[in-house]
Write a protein that binds this DNA or RNA. Structure first.
Lengths: 180, 180
DNA sequence: GTCTATATGCTGATAGAC
DNA sequence: GTCTATCAGCATATAGAC
């Protein structure tokens, strides 16, 4: 059910997908879905929370090397790799925030800020080491995340460039953007 | 009507907003809206098309200076200024593409590609002039647009930085990212 | 655990009065 | 030009049979 909901929400949007459509995709009747989720809102929240939990856990488990610059490269490559592996979940996590209830929104927002905080800490360390030159760390954090996440809007498997080639080029741009 | 629809679509999403809600915001009954739009789909399309037309016309009217680097700076500052001036329209133009009919989607997509083509042409000129160093112009185009458009996700008027200060910093990052 | 049936309410769009 | 009234259909969620 979660798999079917993820694909349908990503394609048509949460509000445009009915529980009947999800049920049809799974091969059951709509009523049966309520054995596995309290309601449609909880289903969306669970998908988004799982995605953010996976993201934070994967980053914690990532090898990061020594020094702020190595950390920054690890972050850029990790972010691109992780996001290209699950485009539907990424799409939902960014597009369906406004369809969350207030409480659920606050919870997801906290996870997102935690992840942004990881990059921000790297940039601050790089600034302290004088290997990164940025007039405003918080703003640079937002700019880099937007640039890296943007890969998902255009990258398609089987295209002109491999994922690794894309990561190489983006890492060059990240390095240039922070004057490293 | 268009003003009310723009605000409501941006806040709740096209699929989650009813014609009755729009009518209530305008102060009329739902049926009266159909004197001004053929249907809900046309209303969305008109909003998006107007936004893209405004964007392209404003860029054409923008003073651009001499040389590819001056052009690039003009583009970066223009993009940030224009997008910060109309956050609702920008939000809709990026988030509601999947709610367009096939024909309408193709039309909006063509306008979007035209705009991207403007930046791409600047980068190619800069590459020819050897003032820009980028291994893949198309990819750099997408990365820069994502970075610049990302301003809308976090910038709020009355915050720590003025729009001009933000544009200054972003222009520095754009210049660094293309090795200029 | 899944089904059918159903409650209650909202949806986009139209017809015709004024 | 705006209203009221309405059509036909779909929405979420639940109840109770099997």
């Amino acid at each position: 059910m979660r798999e079917a909901a993820l694909a349908l929400f990503a394609q048509h949007g949460f509000a445009a997908v009915s529980m009947r459509q999800i049920a049809a995709e799974v091969g059951v009747q709509a009523g049966a879905l309520y054995l596995y989720t309290k309601d449609k809102q909880s289903l969306l929240f669970d998908l988004m929370q799982s995605h953010m939990d996976d993201l934070l856990a994967a980053w914690q488990a990532e090898p990061k090397g020594d020094g702020a610059l190595a950390h920054l490269e690890a972050f850029a490559r990790f972010h691109i790799r992780f996001h290209l592996e699950r485009p539907d979940a990424v799409f939902i996590a960014y597009m369906e925030l406004r369809n969350l209830s207030d409480d659920n929104f606050a919870a997801i927002e906290a996870l997102r800020r935690t992840y942004e905080g990881e990059l921000e800490a790297i940039l601050r360390a790089g600034h302290a080491e004088s290997v990164i030159h940025a007039p405003d760390i918080r703003l640079t954090t937002m700019a880099l995340i937007a640039m890296l996440t943007g890969v998902n809007t255009w990258y398609r498997d089987g295209g002109r460039l491999s994922r690794d080639a894309v990561a190489d080029i983006y890492w060059d741009m990240v390095r240039g953007a922070v004057g490293a």
